[in-house]
């Protein structure tokens, strides 16, 4: 029983560190999504994200296609990390419950 508790405690610590790592990495990445608006036959790229109740459309400037692709990749990575962070939090909750019981 003591050994099992030790394993769970160790996993709790790991998950806490993982949570910190995901939060740190998410903080470095842009949120939202890239949206292209067509205005007078020209494409304009915006980063759309939620700020409280409203959705903000932020013009990302005159980006070259590879820069736009890079921005899209960063947003995608943020979304992937947000999903993993949710999983980490759920696992942490479960491990804490198992330690308590």
């Amino acid at each position: 029983m003591k050994v099992l508790k030790g394993i769970l405690k160790e996993e709790e610590q790991r998950l806490k560190e993982a949570q910190g790592s995901y939060e740190r990495e998410i903080g470095k990445l842009p949120k939202g999504s890239v949206q292209i608006k067509k205005i007078k036959e020209r494409d304009y790229a915006y980063r759309a994200y939620r700020k409280g109740e409203r959705v903000v459309y932020e013009y990302v400037g005159d980006l070259k296609p590879e820069e736009l692709k890079d921005l899209g990749k960063k947003i995608e990575l943020r979304q992937r990390y947000e999903e993993k962070l949710r999983e980490v939090k759920a696992n942490l909750k479960e491990v804490k419950r198992m330690i308590r019981d």
Binding site: S21, Y22, R24, E25, L77, R80, Y81, E83
Partner: peptide
């Protein structure tokens, strides 16, 4: 590893 969803812990 980043593509697989791993984050570095330093």
């Amino acid at each position: 590893l980043q593509e697989l969803g791993f984050a570095p812990t330093f």
